[in-house]
Computed example of a mutant assay.
Amino acid sequence: MNEQSNKLRDLIHCGIFAAITAVLAQLEIPLPLVPISGQTLAVGLAATILGSRKGALAMLCYVLLGTVGLPVFAGATGGVHILFGPTGGYIFAFILTAFITGYYLEKTSFSLTQAMIANTGAMLIALLIGTIWLKYAAALPWAGAIAAGVTPFIIPGLIKAFLASWIGINVRKRLISANIMQDHVAKEKVPA
Protein backbone atom coordinates (compact mmCIF):
# COMPACT_ATOMS: atom_id res chain seq x y z
CA MET A 1 0.00 0.00 0.00
CA ASN A 2 1.40 3.42 -0.89
CA GLU A 3 2.13 6.26 1.54
CA GLN A 4 -0.93 8.30 0.53
CA SER A 5 -3.25 5.33 1.16
CA ASN A 6 -1.66 4.76 4.56
CA LYS A 7 -2.19 8.42 5.52
CA LEU A 8 -5.80 8.28 4.39
CA ARG A 9 -6.38 5.10 6.39
CA ASP A 10 -4.79 6.72 9.46
CA LEU A 11 -7.05 9.77 9.12
CA ILE A 12 -10.09 7.52 8.80
CA HIS A 13 -9.09 5.69 11.99
CA CYS A 14 -8.72 9.04 13.80
CA GLY A 15 -12.11 10.18 12.54
CA ILE A 16 -13.74 6.95 13.65
CA PHE A 17 -12.34 7.34 17.16
CA ALA A 18 -13.39 10.99 17.33
CA ALA A 19 -16.91 9.77 16.46
CA ILE A 20 -16.75 6.92 19.00
CA THR A 21 -15.75 9.46 21.66
CA ALA A 22 -18.71 11.67 20.72
CA VAL A 23 -21.09 8.72 21.03
CA LEU A 24 -19.65 7.43 24.32
CA ALA A 25 -19.75 10.98 25.74
CA GLN A 26 -23.53 10.72 25.67
CA LEU A 27 -23.46 7.76 28.08
CA GLU A 28 -23.35 9.68 31.31
CA ILE A 29 -24.28 9.78 34.95
CA PRO A 30 -25.02 13.42 35.74
CA LEU A 31 -23.28 14.91 38.78
CA PRO A 32 -23.44 18.54 39.97
CA LEU A 33 -20.29 19.86 38.24
CA VAL A 34 -18.63 17.07 36.23
CA PRO A 35 -20.62 14.09 34.91
CA ILE A 36 -19.29 10.55 34.75
CA SER A 37 -19.28 9.76 31.03
CA GLY A 38 -17.94 7.31 28.51
CA GLN A 39 -15.51 9.89 27.10
CA THR A 40 -12.52 8.62 29.07
CA LEU A 41 -13.26 5.06 27.99
CA ALA A 42 -13.08 6.27 24.38
CA VAL A 43 -9.82 8.11 25.05
CA GLY A 44 -8.28 4.92 26.45
CA LEU A 45 -9.57 2.85 23.54
CA ALA A 46 -8.21 5.31 20.98
CA ALA A 47 -4.76 5.40 22.59
CA THR A 48 -4.58 1.65 23.19
CA ILE A 49 -5.64 0.79 19.67
CA LEU A 50 -4.09 3.62 17.63
CA GLY A 51 -1.00 4.54 19.65
CA SER A 52 0.32 7.94 20.66
CA ARG A 53 0.16 10.14 17.57
CA LYS A 54 -3.06 8.83 16.06
CA GLY A 55 -4.74 8.55 19.47
CA ALA A 56 -3.87 12.17 20.28
CA LEU A 57 -4.96 13.26 16.79
CA ALA A 58 -8.31 11.52 17.25
CA MET A 59 -8.82 13.40 20.53
CA LEU A 60 -7.74 16.68 18.95
CA CYS A 61 -10.37 16.13 16.24
CA TYR A 62 -12.96 15.41 18.92
CA VAL A 63 -12.08 18.57 20.85
CA LEU A 64 -12.16 20.67 17.66
CA LEU A 65 -15.58 19.28 16.72
CA GLY A 66 -16.91 20.31 20.11
CA THR A 67 -15.15 23.68 19.97
CA VAL A 68 -16.95 24.66 16.77
CA GLY A 69 -20.26 23.91 18.46
CA LEU A 70 -21.12 20.36 17.44
CA PRO A 71 -22.91 18.62 20.34
CA VAL A 72 -20.19 16.00 20.93
CA PHE A 73 -19.34 16.68 24.58
CA ALA A 74 -21.19 15.04 27.48
CA GLY A 75 -24.87 15.96 27.59
CA ALA A 76 -24.87 16.67 23.84
CA THR A 77 -23.14 20.01 24.41
CA GLY A 78 -20.57 21.85 22.38
CA GLY A 79 -18.97 25.24 22.03
CA VAL A 80 -16.01 27.19 23.32
CA HIS A 81 -17.84 28.00 26.55
CA ILE A 82 -17.73 24.30 27.52
CA LEU A 83 -13.94 24.30 27.18
CA PHE A 84 -13.68 27.24 29.55
CA GLY A 85 -16.25 25.88 31.99
CA PRO A 86 -15.76 23.42 34.86
CA THR A 87 -15.17 20.40 32.59
CA GLY A 88 -12.72 22.08 30.19
CA GLY A 89 -9.60 20.77 31.91
CA TYR A 90 -10.75 17.19 31.55
CA ILE A 91 -11.54 17.71 27.86
CA PHE A 92 -8.17 19.31 27.10
CA ALA A 93 -6.49 16.50 29.06
CA PHE A 94 -7.91 13.93 26.61
CA ILE A 95 -5.34 14.94 23.99
CA LEU A 96 -2.40 14.69 26.38
CA THR A 97 -3.52 11.47 28.05
CA ALA A 98 -4.16 9.77 24.70
CA PHE A 99 -0.62 10.65 23.66
CA ILE A 100 0.90 9.52 26.98
CA THR A 101 -1.02 6.22 26.99
CA GLY A 102 -0.05 5.39 23.42
CA TYR A 103 3.55 6.49 23.94
CA TYR A 104 3.93 4.31 27.03
CA LEU A 105 2.55 1.31 25.14
CA GLU A 106 4.82 1.96 22.16
CA LYS A 107 7.85 2.06 24.47
CA THR A 108 6.85 -1.05 26.46
CA SER A 109 4.44 -3.44 24.78
CA PHE A 110 0.83 -3.60 23.69
CA SER A 111 -0.11 -6.13 26.37
CA LEU A 112 -3.00 -6.14 28.84
CA THR A 113 -0.73 -5.47 31.81
CA GLN A 114 1.06 -2.55 30.18
CA ALA A 115 -2.22 -1.16 28.84
CA MET A 116 -3.71 -1.28 32.33
CA ILE A 117 -0.70 0.62 33.71
CA ALA A 118 -0.89 3.18 30.89
CA ASN A 119 -4.66 3.71 31.11
CA THR A 120 -4.64 3.96 34.92
CA GLY A 121 -1.80 6.47 34.83
CA ALA A 122 -3.60 8.48 32.14
CA MET A 123 -6.78 8.48 34.24
CA LEU A 124 -4.86 9.93 37.17
CA ILE A 125 -3.25 12.59 34.96
CA ALA A 126 -6.65 13.56 33.53
CA LEU A 127 -8.10 13.79 37.03
CA LEU A 128 -5.20 15.98 38.16
CA ILE A 129 -5.47 18.37 35.20
CA GLY A 130 -9.26 18.41 35.30
CA THR A 131 -9.40 19.05 39.04
CA ILE A 132 -6.93 21.91 38.91
CA TRP A 133 -8.99 23.46 36.10
CA LEU A 134 -12.24 22.80 37.99
CA LYS A 135 -10.92 24.53 41.11
CA TYR A 136 -10.29 27.76 39.23
CA ALA A 137 -13.18 27.61 36.71
CA ALA A 138 -15.76 26.99 39.43
CA ALA A 139 -13.95 29.04 42.12
CA LEU A 140 -13.88 26.07 44.50
CA PRO A 141 -11.61 25.46 47.47
CA TRP A 142 -9.21 22.54 47.00
CA ALA A 143 -11.34 20.24 49.16
CA GLY A 144 -14.41 21.04 47.07
CA ALA A 145 -12.56 20.55 43.80
CA ILE A 146 -11.25 17.17 44.94
CA ALA A 147 -14.67 16.12 46.23
CA ALA A 148 -16.32 17.09 42.93
CA GLY A 149 -13.52 16.32 40.49
CA VAL A 150 -11.67 13.28 41.83
CA THR A 151 -13.54 11.24 44.43
CA PRO A 152 -16.55 10.22 42.29
CA PHE A 153 -14.29 9.18 39.41
CA ILE A 154 -11.78 6.79 41.00
CA ILE A 155 -13.82 3.55 40.87
CA PRO A 156 -15.48 4.28 37.50
CA GLY A 157 -12.08 5.38 36.16
CA LEU A 158 -10.45 2.10 37.17
CA ILE A 159 -13.29 0.15 35.55
CA LYS A 160 -12.97 2.19 32.35
CA ALA A 161 -9.16 1.79 32.40
CA PHE A 162 -9.59 -1.99 32.56
CA LEU A 163 -12.22 -2.01 29.79
CA ALA A 164 -10.13 0.27 27.55
CA SER A 165 -7.11 -1.99 28.12
CA TRP A 166 -8.86 -5.30 27.58
CA ILE A 167 -11.03 -4.24 24.65
CA GLY A 168 -8.28 -2.07 23.15
CA ILE A 169 -5.57 -4.75 23.13
CA ASN A 170 -7.92 -7.35 21.66
CA VAL A 171 -9.31 -5.03 18.98
CA ARG A 172 -5.80 -3.83 18.09
CA LYS A 173 -4.60 -7.42 17.58
CA ARG A 174 -7.59 -8.20 15.38
CA LEU A 175 -7.24 -5.04 13.28
CA ILE A 176 -3.56 -5.78 12.69
CA SER A 177 -4.17 -9.43 11.83
CA ALA A 178 -6.96 -8.40 9.43
CA ASN A 179 -4.56 -5.89 7.82
CA ILE A 180 -6.94 -3.04 8.61
CA MET A 181 -4.24 -1.37 10.66
CA GLN A 182 -0.47 -1.55 10.51
CA ASP A 183 1.69 -2.29 13.54
CA HIS A 184 4.26 0.49 13.11
CA VAL A 185 5.75 -0.27 16.53
CA ALA A 186 6.69 -3.85 15.65
CA LYS A 187 8.34 -2.66 12.42
CA GLU A 188 10.41 -0.08 14.29
CA LYS A 189 11.69 -2.67 16.79
CA VAL A 190 12.85 -5.16 14.13
CA PRO A 191 16.64 -4.86 13.68
CA ALA A 192 17.72 -3.89 10.18
Rank of each mutant, 00 (worst) to 15 (best):
L70I: 02
G85L: 04
C61Q: 11
K107G: 07
T113G: 07
L127C: 04
K173S: 13
A118G: 00
A42F: 04
N119L: 05
K107F: 12
K107A: 09
M123G: 10
V80D: 08
I132V: 15
K189P: 05
A143T: 14
A122C: 04
A118C: 03
Y62F: 14
G102W: 00
L112T: 13
P86H: 08
A148V: 10
G149F: 05
S177N: 14
I95Y: 01
L70D: 00
E28C: 01
L8A: 11
A93Q: 06
Q114Y: 09
F110M: 05
T67F: 15
K160S: 03
A76G: 15
P152N: 03
L33Q: 08
N119P: 06
W133A: 01
A56Y: 01
P30Y: 11
S165E: 06
G149P: 02
P32S: 10
A76I: 14
I169S: 08
M123A: 11
G55A: 03
F84G: 06
S177V: 08
G121R: 02
T131I: 02
I155E: 09
P35I: 12
I154P: 06
S109A: 14
G144Q: 10
S177L: 09
G121E: 00
P141D: 12
G144A: 10
S165R: 04
N179K: 14
S52V: 13
L140Y: 09
G102R: 00
V68A: 00
T131N: 01
A126S: 13
P30V: 13
I176Y: 04
A22T: 11
N170Q: 11
A192F: 05
C61M: 15
T113F: 14
L64C: 11
A93V: 13
Q182C: 07
G85K: 01
N179A: 09
T151Y: 14
N170C: 03
T151V: 15
Q182N: 11
A18L: 01
K187C: 05
G66F: 04
L158V: 10
E106G: 03
S177G: 06
E188N: 13
M181D: 04
K173W: 10
T77A: 15
L112A: 11
T40C: 05
I176L: 08
I155T: 09
T108L: 05
H81L: 12
I169F: 09
T151L: 15
N6I: 13
A93I: 14
G51H: 01
W166Y: 13
I49P: 00
L96I: 12
D10L: 14
W133H: 10
A164I: 04
I146Y: 00
I180G: 07
G78E: 11
I117T: 03
A164Y: 01
M181F: 06
L158T: 08
P35R: 08
A47Q: 01
T87A: 09
I146C: 03
L163E: 11
A143L: 13
M1E: 11
K54Q: 15
L140P: 07
F162L: 14
L65Y: 07
I180Y: 15
A18G: 03
D183F: 03
A76M: 15
Y62H: 07
L70R: 02
I117M: 06
Q26C: 10
V185L: 13
V80C: 12
A148H: 14
I16D: 04
